[in-house]
Design a protein around this nucleic acid. Structure first.
Length: 258
DNA sequence: ATGACGGTGTGGCACCGA
């Protein structure tokens, strides 16, 4: 089975590309971020016609997340329980698979703007709350994936300019420590389970020919629990949609499991 | 140092993203 994550930067604009991508990459589960729309505007019908049920947690203008699946989605959760948040950043659901239930936690992690700002402090609080929640989710659901737009480049090799961008947003010691803390719960960065091309990124700035020059960051991730790790057979970044007219600035990341 | 690109809103630019 395949499960993917894609920050679409406005689902209203990108829906045709999402449908086109699903037609060519009929993944079992697709997690979306940055819907930038409310649930009353979510394209449930169009996705159903394409063979996908969906659950969505939306917001006007900013944020918004959804899970699409070919099979029913149950045990829905919105945002991090117990963490007051005005922003729609997390949706979780359980998907039935031939191997048993799979818990899917889809997050649009806080950007954080710059160290020292209120937004960065919010990012730190948010990451701590996420960590505590993921620990309890893992205890209840051994077969679990945590995926989405993490807004963290975990290592220097995940950035096109680790020296010039050292200690800037996505690259700080604090953000990376939070990423490592998630791995410390028993999660594995599926992309790094395999040999990958050098300079592999999942996001490129729209400006200054960022994609053409491959000036990007790997900030979209799929983490798998210990119970799933042995079943993972591949993890890839699909750069093709970034070449579309009117692309999202992010590319989908795809996990394949036996 | 700044802006560059793209999306959204009730707009003629500002804000946000990463």
């Amino acid at each position: 089975m395949q499960i993917a994550t894609w920050n679409v930067n406005s689902l209203s604009v990108r829906l045709p590309q999402v449908l086109d991508w699903l037609a060519r990459q009929p993944v079992d589960v697709l997690c979306l971020q940055e819907l930038k729309l409310t649930e009353d505007k979510f394209p449930f019908m169009e996705l159903r016609s394409a063979g996908y049920e969906a659950v969505a947690f939306g917001q006007k203008t900013y944020n918004g997340v959804a899970i699409l699946a070919r099979t029913p989605l149950t045990a829905l959760a919105r945002n991090i329980p117990g963490f007051e948040d005005e922003q729609a950043r997390v949706i979780a659901a359980t998907v039935e698979t031939p191997q048993g239930p799979l818990r899917v936690l889809n997050g649009y992690f806080v950007n954080g703007q710059a160290p020292g700002t209120d937004k960065f402090a919010y990012k730190m609080r948010w990451l701590q709350a996420l960590h505590d929640w993921v620990r309890s989710e893992l205890a209840a659901h051994p077969r679990l994936v945590l995926l989405g737009d993490f807004n963290v480049a975990p290592e220097d090799r995940d950035s096109y300019d680790p020296v010039g961008l050292a200690d800037t947003i996505h690259h700080t010691r604090e953000e990376r420590a939070h990423f490592q803390a998630l791995l410390g719960l028993g999660l594995t960065d599926a992309y790094r389970m395999f040999e990958q091309p050098e300079k592999s990124y999942s996001w490129w700035d729209y400006r200054m020919l960022g994609f053409q020059k491959n000036r990007g960051l790997r900030i979209d991730h799929i983490l798998v629990s210990e119970a799933l790790r042995g079943a993972v057979t591949a993890c890839t970044i699909d750069r093709a949609p970034r070449k579309n007219p009117q692309p999202s600035d992010h590319a989908p990341v795809v996990l394949t499991m036996a």
